[in-house]
Amino acid sequence: MTKEDRLVIGGKSLKSRLFIGTGKLPNKLLPGVIAASGTEVVTVALRRVDFRSPQENPVAYIPENVIIMPNTSGARNAEEAVKIARLAQAAGCGNWVKIEVITDQKYLLPDNEETVKATEILAKEGFVVLPYIMPDLIIARRLEEVGAAAVMPLGAPIGSNRGLRSREFLRILVEEITTIPVIVDAGIGKPSEAAAAMEMGVDAVLVNTAVATAGDPVLMAGAFAAAVKAGREGYLAGLGPSSLYASASSPLTGFLHEVSK
């Protein structure tokens, strides 16, 4: 593997291909999770302060060299997503943003059309826009055209830990979307699934629930880091061909019973 295997997004050169979502994680676990994962990009959300039980801002727990990418969760259309992105920037979050436009409350599936509209507006304003999408080639191509910095198709519904249910469509995106990174966001529940995604050639994965709901989130963050690295190196190494039938690994001549005859 070359030393220069880097993921470049929005002009930033990243060593780690594991993005971590901070939802459902107590702030005090954040430094340990971030260190164990080796991540350089974490997601956060923007919410109204709850005056009855104010939550501590997680930003203080995130090292300065880690990119903080707010999501637009809560947005039901492009206009709301744009508004949330601008407010998050006013809150000191820099110019990266994960577009998340959701109207379906049961499966939390993204609205691809509104996502394209929001991406176009924010990319023009200079944001580094990473839209969360259904793994749809036509939408991914439009996002490429309107200036998305990456596309983030789902593996399975958010928080479901159900793995790479959309595998066939992810494969198509990996093959066809070549000018911007493809990052699997949502659904990855196990390190082995992160490794499988990376082996397919996706550029990175975003994991939140699988780490946050693990028995030991810090240990799990390290497990995901190892899995992402293994999967990436497997991809770069070039997977060998598969076959329905056996293909002997050992030589088929010089067996011992031939000698004893």
Binding site: G21, K24, T43, A45, L46, R47, R48
Partner: peptide, 10 residues
């Protein structure tokens, strides 16, 4: 008046 803050999110 809206008072907003950053919270954990995925």
């Amino acid at each position: 008046v809206e008072v907003l803050t950053i919270v954990g999110g995925g």
